[in-house]
Nucleic acid binder design. Structure first.
Lengths: 220, 220
DNA sequence: AAATATTTTTAGGTGAGACTAAAATTATAT
DNA sequence: ATATAATTTTAGTCTCACCTAAAAATATTT
């Protein structure tokens, strides 16, 4: 079954908002995520439901079906493989790849993705640490905690940062935080949720709560 | 000015049908080329004319403007760079690249194309021998003759074959004809327009007129 | 030059995917 | 429990790119 570009984007949004298909998603949340109006979402839900890629009851929110999940994961696979290509082969920075990959992910050619995957050496994660789903729609979700959840004294390794926020990514470049960096929480500031950390044993710096909740780590 | 995918395809068609913008193009020819109906073409001509990318008078055919030519050449540039990528980096065959490049050519990101161009080593022709326009819309059109135009005894070097006909390209693979091959016309058959040729001094074979008129050569 | 054929345009309509405004449903607060 | 607020859906439009059928313009025959 071939979905339109718009339909693919809806499915992807639902997949993400439902955290990998586990929770129900509201009409408003989808509208917000896709920068459209709730009325448009309702229309589309009827259509996607008819196609069997979501389960939908009026006023009751949306659940992605197995079929839908597979399609969403395939789009995500393509997005992340293209991100790897843009960074590793073309020399883009990690804050530049998301928007272009948003376009490339809709190119239709399974063979192209097979060959791209091989060309890139079968990567398992994209430049932001997100796991790349397999051809069969399997995805390896790692247990992770946000930097804000760590306690004073705890140590973690950065394994994931958001791909869609260039300004944040550029800031991480500035403070020299990258995937794989070891981060130690020295002090948590009660008042504003900011944290004092050291990155790879460098001199400590403060990070705002807004930033630290977006940085995902594996406990060490 | 941003054109839609459909508008870009119309411009590209007009550019090609007008042989690089030189001749007038008829409504029917465009409809045939784009597999659409003449009525749809008339609609689009009004729109493209309003945008200043073509000169159009009702019932009088269409001429592409300088502005339009530049846009068309940019799309063609992208198409041909992607074809090089697919063939040289991903290992596609030359008969497989056209359809995928038709999709990739509409990706919008000047920086992407700059970087892709560099990654490919600034190629000047695509896998079918078509010249790749520069960023500024310049294109190096070589004088060339179709194999059918050669006389008996004449020798030519293959410099261009059509990119959009996979069956033909696969046939050329079979008879081991590639870009750069030296082709000698041994005999021209009056009756059906076929020609007896030798490719790179191999044993002679017959080619139908339909094939030979699509193979473009530089006289040697 | 008139008749006929071809090409092109206009008129009106369709589906996709968006919108606004209003109605219906569900959730929250009093 | 009722009133109010928030969310969601429906109803009715809009634009885009296509369509068919009919009309208009141009080209070709006789």
């Amino acid at each position: 079954m071939e979905l339109s570009l718009a339909e693919e984007n809806y499915l992807k949004s639902i997949y993400h908002l439902s955290e990998n298909g586990d929770t129900e998603v509201s009409t408003n949340a989808i509208a917000e995520d896709l920068q459209t109006k709730p009325a448009s979402v309702s229309d589309m839900m009827r259509k996607l439901s008819d196609k069997g890629v979501i389960e939908y009851q009026k006023y009751k929110g949306v659940h992605i079906s197995d079929k839908g999940k597979k399609i969403a994961l395939n789009v995500i696979r393509k997005h992340r493989l293209w991100e790897v290509f843009l960074l590793e082969k073309l020399g883009f920075r990690w804050d530049e790849v998301h928007d272009i990959a948003e376009q490339l992910e809709h190119i239709k050619s399974p063979l192209l993705i097979k060959k791209l995957d091989a060309f890139l050496g079968y990567p398992s994660v994209d430049p932001h640490g997100d796991p790349i789903p397999t051809e069969n729609g399997e995805i390896n979700i790692q247990p992770q905690k946000s930097l804000m959840e760590l306690n004073e004294g705890e140590l973690g390794q950065v394994i994931n940062v958001p791909d869609s926020n260039p300004a944040l990514l550029r800031h991480l470049d500035q403070i020299k935080m990258k995937l794989g960096s070891l981060v130690k929480v020295i002090e948590k500031v009660e008042f504003d949720g900011s944290v004092l950390i050291s990155i790879d044993n460098q001199s400590p710096i403060y990070l705002s709560g807004a930033i630290s909740e977006n940085i995902m780590l594996k406990l060490k």
